[in-house]
Amino acid sequence: MKAIITVIGRDQVGIMYGVSGVLQRLGVNIEDVTQTIMQEYFTMLMLVRIDEEKATLRQVSDALNELGEEKGLSIRVQKEEIFDTMHKI
């Protein structure tokens, strides 16, 4: 299942490391990443593929939320289709 992960928060050392660590642990493959700093906020978007035999979207989302709370980041995991349908005819 393809999902989009968005990470927004104050820039700090180790965001990428933290997020990719959680994903590695749950067997989630990162297919594309883009990141930028907007008005001193770190903004990262990831396109990932979740292997449902290893973890459900809910588990990935819960694990990342835990990380988000620890580091003060807003992390969302959403199925990719929502973005496709809203912006394509």
Partner: peptide, 16 residues
């Protein structure tokens, strides 16, 4: 990446 612009637009709609 046009798709990422769209994603940010959606996230903005949801959050703000």
């Amino acid at each position: 990446m046009a798709i990422y612009k769209d994603i940010m637009e959606t996230i903005h709609m949801l959050e703000k």
